[in-house]
Amino acid sequence: MSVGCWDTIAAYAFRSLGYGERLLPREGFTLCEHFTLIGSGLIWNVYFGVLALIFGFFLATAVALGKATANPLIRKPCEWFVFVFRGSPLFIQFFFAYQLFVLLPRDGIEIFGITAETRWLTRAWAGALIVLFLNTAAYSAEIFYGALQSVPRGDMEAAEAYGLTGWNKFRRITWPTMLRLAWPAYTNEAIFLFHATTLVYFSGFPAWQQSGDALYYANYFADKTFNPFVAYPIVAFYFILLTLTVIGLFSIINKRLNQHLPGERKRIRYRPQLIR
């Protein structure tokens, strides 16, 4: 690595967060600049993916349980939530949410005498995160719901025989079993979600001061150089690394979920899907 490349890294490594050199490279476009800026953009993909996944996990569990209850007042809203977010394209959801957030009054909303700021919702870091959170919650809820339906009856009967009821039974038996059954599919959903984060800056949410994600910068380079054969393979490379990391982390959890079952430590098979 040449000395010049270290300078580029110093200038652009955190460009996507607004630190470092203000102006993006305008000509020349070295390979080093490609790698640094696109890598810098990847910070946003990781940010969106990790936070949406963590928040989405809890909502998904709640919605899956809601879908499985007999009470239609709870079941119906949960079913509709899943249907709306799984039945429509994420791309349109982004556009829709952005327009919705833009329409909120600029000065904020008065709630009990306190003005709630609404401007930040139109920014990608918050607005797009909310959409991704709800979207992944809906997809994961469907996965968890399916797993919940296939929890073995014998497990539940055994739990009852031990005197476990209510929250205790759920916490110790139902929930871990559900997670164990859902985990391979949930791993795919996680990978899928990280891929979906590339849509954010192409769907209404503006990139402020040219701070965008990995694909945003790749697109910038491809537009400027009119050469798609460098920038896009670099994004692909970064995403393969990201995908492998996700698979690695999720298999560690998978091992833990299955550790009480001898010979059941199946490897997670990654079955790719595309756009939601």
């Binding site: 891929h195 697109n219 492998l244």
Partner: peptide, 20 residues
């Protein structure tokens, strides 16, 4: 090829690459 890489990358790539 489509494993591990967001499809939208392929969309943006192929549309220029095919043209060229």
């Amino acid at each position: 090829i489509v494993r591990g890489v967001p499809d939208i990358v392929f969309f943006l790539f192929f549309v220029i690459a095919l043209d060229q």
